[in-house]
Design a protein around this nucleic acid. Structure first.
Lengths: 341, 341
DNA sequence: CTGTTAGCGCGTTCAT
DNA sequence: ATGAACGCGCTAACAG
């Protein structure tokens, strides 16, 4: 079935197959073009010849005509964050599933954005997905102004007419406040980042609003330069110092929550959940580890990925449609850090 | 400088630039071809016109001629493992740096390998990088038999004539044994996976050999189905049950070590490092977290990435060279889990 | 339903 | 150094 003799010869082309099958080049092309009209007999002949020769369509040549490469750029940063890594993996998986090819472009802030832009534009990517704490503005603007379909994940501050997928941050904050309240906490605080992204600041604001509605004192807010483990660690320290009577904390990401939990356990005398209850957001894998067992608000990254790719394909079909904003539902996963004694 | 009026018009081509600059199309082509001969004056004219029109070379068309797409497939699985995620990120970064485009293909075991192979071959990838606990054999074989340059990371069992980059697993195991010995441990054990990859089994074997050389009892070995957090957790349980006098453990990956540490802390009365010392391997980010503070053997993923891309480019230059095997040095990072009291 | 023809955007001869 | 012509592998529009 397979012949391996021509390792270093030129790749087999549609013409080769055509000759071998005794048909025309177009017949071959049509056989491999989804919506085409070929008789069953010729199709069979072509398939046989193609199989014997080990023929594969050259998508590069095809996309030169179709004007769509089916390449999709994933611009991602902060992949040390487990949530981000999982996001990227599921996105890539979903893209492959839908017959797109994910090309991964790591990009921290504004580090060599021109190179990334070049990769995107010179390869005629069909679309771009951006997921990053600090999305590279210049990349987004360039794509938008050139009409390259783009989907932003959990970004809201960019006012441009761009498709977005975001989890229900509004509800997340409210759920967090409500959950802590139900568990008997009355002195709440939130732990976040100095320069929060849109998503993260919405979480804090809705958390604060919900606290007010529930008739609690205005919650404290403590933040660190970066929303990672160390950030959670240091913010937790600040919290206990400046707000000693805190009895419930909402960490805007699980990644920070892990740091906070370790601070409480290792550097303070507060016992979680007895003296202090903690709730996070994202439901990263680590949250379910026995060492943390963190109550959190789940974002289903698999669903998120589906929504993102869905938004992208919708945009392909209708490039002129108004910007699409999709919301992903959230739900509480109750674990040990908010248990009542 | 930039003109954004033609969002939905066809992309600007080299011919457009040629007309605009009053030169021939070849002149434009030459201007954007690294090793070409163009006079400074025409080059300047071309550049000006290109800039005004927002021209960018169409790499897809270019690669149709060059027969090299500069696309490099990264076939990766188990990206929940932080070490793997970091590896992928650094690889992608290095590839972009070297002007390749990483296309990310998540692949667990033998799940739809034909789709992945299609993505690789139909897009004429210049090369493939494989990193996975369970590398999809069929993909590798297909690529090898078709002469697609491939680099395997930390894989050794595949005998084919393929380039490989591996960290010094041999030394890792010896260092682990020696380090535990130096810290006063005498009853050692290793924690690993039921079906270890090449790398992981070498680590265990060299660990055992080193124990013997040091005159210690033969170390125990305990394993779990998967080399992840939960695997480390359950293997630790088995270890304490079957080998109660153990005083030093070598976890073949940090990912497992985290699970083991949590088991010791939460489900046993052994104190680390007083009753039991632990050393891991990889130096993932979590190992440095205050909650774990794990002594480990570092693999520099940045360096690894450089080696991988280096091996790939070397292969491009000389397709017929004998298989290249590159070793990455390791070093101990001493933290709390092996401290002496 | 089939084969023929004409490009897609580009690099590279081959003359000048 | 420069322009004209050709071809990379493929699809689409056109005739039969």
């Amino acid at each position: 079935m397979k012949r391996e003799e021509e390792e270093f010869s030129r790749q087999v082309t549609a013409l080769d197959v055509a000759k071998h099958a005794g048909v025309s080049r177009s017949a071959v092309s049509r056989t491999f073009t989804p919506g085409a009209s070929v008789s069953a007999s010729t199709r069979e002949k072509v398939m046989k010849a193609a199989d014997e020769l080990g023929y594969r369509v050259n998508q590069l040549a095809r996309s030169l005509i179709n004007k769509r490469s089916d390449l999709v750029g994933i611009v991602a940063a902060n992949m040390d964050n487990p949530f981000r890594a999982q996001q990227v993996e599921h996105m890539a998986r979903e893209l492959v599933e839908q017959n797109f090819r994910p090309i991964l472009l790591p990009a921290e802030g504004e580090e060599n954005p021109s190179r990334v832009i070049g990769m995107l534009l010179e390869y005629n990517v069909s679309g771009v997905i951006v997921t990053s704490d600090t999305p590279p503005q210049s990349i987004c603007q360039e794509c938008v102004s050139l009409g390259v379909p783009m989907v932003l994940i959990n970004k809201g501050e960019i006012d441009a007419s761009v498709d977005r997928v975001l989890l229900d941050n509004e509800t997340s904050g409210r759920i967090a406040a409500r959950h802590l309240y139900d568990k008997g906490c009355r002195q709440l605080a939130s732990i976040g980042s100095d320069k929060p992204s849109y998503s993260l600041s919405v979480r804090v604001k809705s958390f604060q609003a919900a606290c007010k509605e529930l008739g609690m004192n205005a919650p404290g807010h403590f933040s660190a330069p970066i929303s990672d483990y160390n950030g959670g660690f240091t913010a937790a320290e600040a919290m206990l110092r400046d707000m000693p009577d805190v009895d419930g904390a909402f960490c805007i990401t699980d990644y920070m929550a892990l740091g906070s939990l370790d601070y409480f356990r290792l550097r303070s005398d507060r016992k979680v959940p007895d003296d202090l209850k903690v709730i996070g957001c994202d439901d990263i894998l680590q949250a379910s580890w026995a060492g943390y067992d963190l109550t959190t608000i789940r974002q289903d990254t698999r669903l998120l990925a589906k929504q993102v790719v869905g938004a992208l394909t919708a945009r392909f079909k209708n490039p002129l449609a108004p910007p699409d904003i999709r919301m992903v539902d959230v739900s509480v996963v109750e674990r040990a850090t908010t248990k009542t004694s």
